[in-house]
Write a protein that binds this DNA or RNA. Structure first.
Lengths: 109, 109
DNA sequence: CCAATAGTCAAGTGGACGCTTAAGTATCGA
DNA sequence: TCGATACTTAAGCGTCCACTTGACTATTGG
């Protein structure tokens, strides 16, 4: 094992920042422009642009520029990949517990 | 909105590192000591201990020392919290798509 | 008792991160 | 055409992060 899943690195890294999670939470409700995303956030526009770049780098967000407006939207497939990793770990843990329970039941008096 | 969920920050931050994900992947299969965790990892024991501290700080892992051996195990509830955040975002996105579909269907010729 | 084992602690280093300000470019509306 | 809008780019700054080395403590088996 020990395979470096760099994609997963980037997704979790992207989601570890509250500002970026807030941007995702906004975008699941529908697409938005950069300034719309920046409006409720307590920082400069440039900072928000940088956050969006991180989100795009992770694949969580995709954007497209028309005229002078860049419109951003979520890419749910990547969201799902992270969800699956987590679900997988939980499942493995649960099946282990089950086997442990079975073993204890078998060896009961 | 805009509530800083510092717990979620720490969980995603913890999971953004491949070494720490490898440790979690090992621990869902059952508890392990620090040196057992360190054995397959290409770094010093001290580095592994630091990773374990990060995982403990996020609540993903819990450990207990007996004699000179520290035994680590996963805490699946925290794993689940992260999973739920992701599932929630995906669900919101899906219901939005549904509503959009309904709207388009209603306004058909 | 004492050597090996298992982990702990602290300081240091290079690089990534989050943010700022400042200056620039492209587009649109009147 | 000209000013406002909507970003974009770059440099800089303080902080956090992953990792190392080296020294240290506590336990345990023989």
């Amino acid at each position: 094992m020990l395979k470096h899943d760099a994609d997963l690195d980037r997704v979790f890294q992207a989601l570890s920042d509250p500002t970026r999670r807030a941007i995702v939470e906004r975008l699941v409700r529908g697409p938005a422009s950069v300034s719309q995303l920046a409006e409720p956030l307590p920082m400069s526009l440039a900072a928000v642009v940088q956050h969006i770049q991180v989100l795009e780098g992770s694949g969580l967000v995709h954007s497209e520029k028309v005229g002078r407006v860049r419109t951003c939207r979520v890419e749910p497939t990547v969201l799902r990949r992270a969800e699956e990793w987590l679900a997988n770990q939980r499942t493995l843990w649960e099946t282990r517990l089950e086997r442990l329970g079975d073993f204890l039941a078998e060896n009961e008096t």
